[in-house]
Design a protein around this nucleic acid. Structure first.
Length: 355
DNA sequence: GATACGTGGGC
DNA sequence: TGCCCAAGTAT
């Protein structure tokens, strides 16, 4: 593909975007001034490995509660972690706060260059390029999974990802125009999300179909080529649901805070028997007395699956065990439990209703 | 380069 | 139903 056709790709794509751009809460319409860098940054971090549909409510909640970077920087850790609960990849929330505080401490404005952005916590190559392009109009080569798919199809790249990444980046660089940087980046992502989809791409609607090698060869869905996935181990574990003043008004449950790093790091949780990605749980109940089983919940993490037995202890005047807090059942939805523990809680509460 | 790190939706 | 996938980053 020569330079003139590379230019043609950008023109065709931007013309398509002028008509078909998705309207999203964090986005400015095509050709209009860039949105607030805080909102661009926040949305990009939330969107890392996460679907637009899942992000929308969280983005609204965060921007309502913390309208600017100074407000977010001032928020207590536990409030931000709880607000992130359910969105996954919790290191993002920890890095989000660290980044907000770093920006706030250095004057309250985000760096306006890709290099400056890349130095902030939680901003890797993709996010730094995306914010530089979308919020600051900088020319940047923005490569996410959508761009990888579009480019690997345009050029029919047979090398599997991740080995193909340097070539994909080079091809993406070649078609990235000097102007309309933010629009171009978002146009590539919109094309990938709505037309050049992973399965059953809608080539008849694609503005780039005429120059697409994969389309010409007849099987665009074959790209990008990826290495086969390895299967996930299945681990066994137990979680402990401990109530005090069981059945009374104002019943509370014992919650702990997970260590700051690792699985579900920094999140509120039920006590458990130490299950992790590498081993089944092996610890005993944190409290002597009568236990019964509520049942099991299944949960699939990014790199393993868990079968979690939920053990119940319903006592009166239960003593506190180590670090943790008694949490009122009627406010449990505000505790910010990660999904696996929210499932366990639902099971435990269902048992109570049955009893 | 390989691995750890969540979750929900689509087919 | 189970597998694939998503606007990746840190180590």
């Amino acid at each position: 593909m020569d330079a003139s056709s590379d230019t043609a790709i950008a023109t065709l794509l931007l013309d398509w975007y002028d008509i078909h751009a998705r309207s999203l809460p964090w986005r400015a319409p095509p050709g209009t001034p860039a949105p607030d860098p805080y909102r661009v940054w926040l949305s990009e971090v939330m969107l890392q490995q996460t679907t637009v549909a899942a992000v929308k409510d969280y983005f609204a909640a965060f921007t309502t509660r913390w309208p600017d970077v100074a407000a977010l920087a001032s928020a207590p850790d536990e409030d931000v972690m709880a607000a992130w609960a359910g969105l996954g990849y919790y290191a993002r929330a920890r890095n989000l706060l660290a980044c907000a505080r770093e920006v706030a401490a250095s004057g309250g404005r985000f760096p306006d260059t890709e290099e400056g952005l890349r130095a902030l916590p939680g901003l890797g190559a993709y996010t730094a390029a995306a914010v530089a392009a979308i919020a600051f109009g900088r020319r940047a080569v923005v490569v996410d999974a959508n761009v990888e798919r579009v480019v690997s199809r345009l050029s029919a790249i047979d090398t599997p990802i991740p080995a193909a990444r340097p070539l994909i980046r080079q091809k993406a660089d070649a078609i990235t125009p000097d102007g309309r940087s933010g629009d171009f980046a978002q146009a590539m992502m919109d094309l990938g999300a709505t037309v050049c989809t992973p399965r059953n791409p809608r080539c008849l609607l694609c503005p780039l179909a005429a120059g697409c090698a994969a389309r010409t060869m007849g099987d665009p869905g074959r790209y990008p080529v990826k290495a086969p996935k390895t299967s996930k181990p299945v681990r066994q574990g137990r979680a402990f649901w401990i109530e005090r003043d069981c059945g009374a008004a104002g019943t509370e449950v014992w919650l702990v805070r997970r260590p700051a790093t690792g699985m579900l790091g920094g999140m509120r949780a039920l006590p458990d028997d130490g299950w992790n990605a590498r081993a089944d749980g092996s610890g005993g109940e944190p409290l002597k007395g009568l236990w019964r089983t509520a049942g099991r919940v299944g949960h699939v993490f990014s790199h393993f699956a868990l079968e979690l037995e939920v053990a119940l202890h319903c006592g009166t005047r239960v003593q506190a065990m180590g670090e943790g807090e008694w949490w009122p059942l009627e406010r449990l939805d505000e505790a910010g439990l990660p999904t696996v523990f929210a499932k366990a809680a639902r099971l435990a509460l269902g048992q109570k209703e049955d009893a």
